[in-house]
């Protein structure tokens, strides 16, 4: 273990960005990914440790306007308790229900969940179906610079993102979903609580004149990154949500999901579960 020589917990974003300008700090928010990773040795601390928790402008949920903005340090519990989000984006709130335990949810942040870039991260599939983008900021030439990239392009591989070392994730943003937007989330693990997803599925679409429009389907833990299931989406787009469409969507999952065997589940089981969940989620939407 490398020794931590500096610990910073600034109150302002620009201070934090200046501290990471050299790209050589260990950043954390809730620490619920960082602590187990450093403890088990898969990751080392850098000499400079930077906490984001005191930066007020990184927290909070803005849900009034056309664009919904969730600050990076917003905890999973805050999302779970947000009545605004329950109304606007229930699919996101649904995903917090099955997230870890109360203690972890109180510490874990949405920014940490995305930056950790686990294929099994539970915030990714619902945010992908909401068409979210992430906002990244850095300190360059004496000023705070920000850029936005679609969440889909953010994930590069397990633990790898498009975020540069000097950048911080400041917020996740998405357009207010239309009123007839329907969304669903489903995850599985062998236990009802405190479980890392074996696989997860999120679905989002509008139903106009009986036809599915703007379909987005996302999957977790079936590939190196959380992903949009383009083949499943294609099988659904513009179609009526009937038994034939659902069967076609289920069949298309094998084109999108390329899971692996690991200590948590076999590839067979993950593919099987994805089919079960896609079918379940679509049937559920169809019934309601």
């Amino acid at each position: 273990m490398q020794e931590i020589t500096t610990y910073l917990a600034p109150r302002r974003l620009d201070e934090a960005l200046r501290a990471t300008a050299d790209g050589d700090a260990t950043v954390f928010c809730g620490g619920t990914d960082l602590a187990p990773q450093t403890e088990s040795g898969v990751r080392q601390y850098k000499a400079k440790l930077l906490s984001l928790r005191r930066i007020e402008e990184l927290g909070g949920i803005e849900a009034e306007g056309h664009e919904i903005r969730i600050g990076a340090t917003t905890t999973i519990s805050e999302i779970r308790r947000s009545s605004a989000l329950a109304e606007i984006a229930p699919v996101l709130v649904e995903a917090t229900e099955h997230f870890a335990s109360e203690q972890i949810r109180n510490a874990a942040s949405v920014g940490g969940n995305l930056c950790n870039a686990s294929p099994a991260g539970d915030m990714s599939p619902p945010l992908l179906v909401l068409g979210a983008a992430v906002e990244l900021a850095c300190w360059r030439e004496g000023a705070v610079r920000t850029r936005r990239i679609p969440l889909e392009e953010f994930f590069l591989g397990p633990g790898k993102t498009a975020k540069l070392p000097e950048e911080l994730l400041t917020a996740v943003v998405f357009e207010r979903p239309v009123v007839d937007f329907v969304g669903r989330f489903r995850k599985s693990g062998p236990r009802p609580a405190l479980e890392i997803s074996t696989v997860s599925v999120a679905f989002g679409a509008r139903i106009a004149n009986g036809l599915l429009r703007g379909v987005r389907v996302a999957m977790g833990a079936v590939a190196p990154t959380p992903l949009r299931a383009r083949h499943v989406e294609a099988a659904l787009e513009g179609k009526p949500l009937d038994a034939a469409t659902i069967a076609a969507a289920v069949a298309a999952t094998t084109e999108d999901a390329k899971p692996i065997d690991d200590v948590r589940a076999s590839a067979w089981y993950r593919s099987h579960l994805i089919q079960v969940f896609v079918e379940e989620v679509l049937n559920d939407v169809r019934r309601n």
Binding site: R191, P192, A193, R264
Partner: peptide, 12 residues
């Protein structure tokens, strides 16, 4: 580790 070695927890 307890993440991957699954003990029964209260809800079960």
């Amino acid at each position: 580790c307890f993440r991957d070695y699954k003990l029964i927890t209260a809800p079960e």
